[in-house]
Simulated scan of single mutants.
Amino acid sequence: MKRLFGNEIQATHDEWLKAAEQLETEVSRQGIQVVRVPFDPTDFVRFRDAHPEIKGNQKLRQAWVVNRFAANNPDG
């Protein structure tokens, strides 16, 4: 994961998971529905390579999540 995201991601999975769960709790408290999207590094790299127009890791991750969610939930 560090190869994909460099310093934009926590050093260990446990650190990342703790931060993700805290963010999930905070967002849920604001009344926003949280949807977990399983991460597939191979699929992400394919998506990245197919969309060179998307600049920046954060924008790329957001676009990938929207794409994966839409693919897995065709009815919205």
Rank of each mutant, 00 (worst) to 15 (best):
R48D: 09
D14P: 00
W16L: 10
N73V: 04
K55P: 00
V66H: 11
S28W: 11
N73H: 12
T12N: 08
R29V: 00
P38L: 10
R61I: 15
A19L: 13
R46N: 04
F39Q: 01
L60M: 12
S28E: 15
R48T: 11
R3W: 03
E8K: 13
I54T: 10
W16C: 05
Q10N: 08
D49E: 11
A70H: 12
D14N: 12
V37D: 07
T42A: 06
M1P: 08
W16N: 07
N57E: 08
R46D: 08
E53H: 12
P74F: 07
L23G: 10
M1G: 11
K59E: 12
V65R: 15
R68Q: 10
K59N: 15
N7R: 06
R36D: 05
D49A: 04
F44S: 03
T42L: 03
E53V: 04
D49K: 07
E26M: 09
R3F: 07
P41E: 01
R3Q: 11
L17S: 11
G6P: 03
D40F: 03
Q33I: 04
N73D: 01
V34H: 08
R29L: 08
P74M: 10
A20Y: 08
G76I: 14
A50I: 00
V65T: 15
D49S: 06
P74G: 10
V27M: 07
V65K: 14
T25C: 13
R61Y: 11
Q33M: 05
T42K: 06
K55A: 03
V34F: 08
R68L: 01
L17N: 12
Q22N: 13
T42E: 04
N57I: 01
Q62I: 13
L17M: 13
Q22G: 06
N7L: 04
D43T: 04
D49P: 00
V65D: 11
V34S: 09
E21N: 11
P41R: 03
L60F: 01
A19F: 09
K2A: 02
G56N: 05
M1W: 07
K18L: 14
P38W: 06
D49V: 01
N7W: 02
A50Q: 09
P52Y: 10
K55C: 00
R68H: 02
G76Q: 13
A20L: 09
G6A: 06
W16M: 07
I54M: 10
N73T: 07
V35Y: 14
F5T: 02
R48G: 08
V45G: 02
D40W: 01
V34C: 12
E8M: 10
R46L: 05
V27W: 07
M1Q: 10
T42M: 02
A11Q: 03
K59T: 05
N73G: 02
P41T: 04
A11I: 01
F47P: 00
W64T: 01
Q62S: 13
V45A: 04
V45F: 01
N72W: 06
I54R: 13
E53M: 09
S28D: 15
T42R: 05
A63T: 09
N67A: 15
Q10I: 00
P41K: 03
E26I: 05
V65N: 14
L4T: 01
L4P: 00
F5E: 04
Q62F: 08
G76C: 13
R61P: 06
D14R: 13
T25M: 14
N67Y: 15
A70M: 12
I54F: 09
D14T: 11
D75M: 14
N7Q: 04
A63W: 08
Q58E: 12
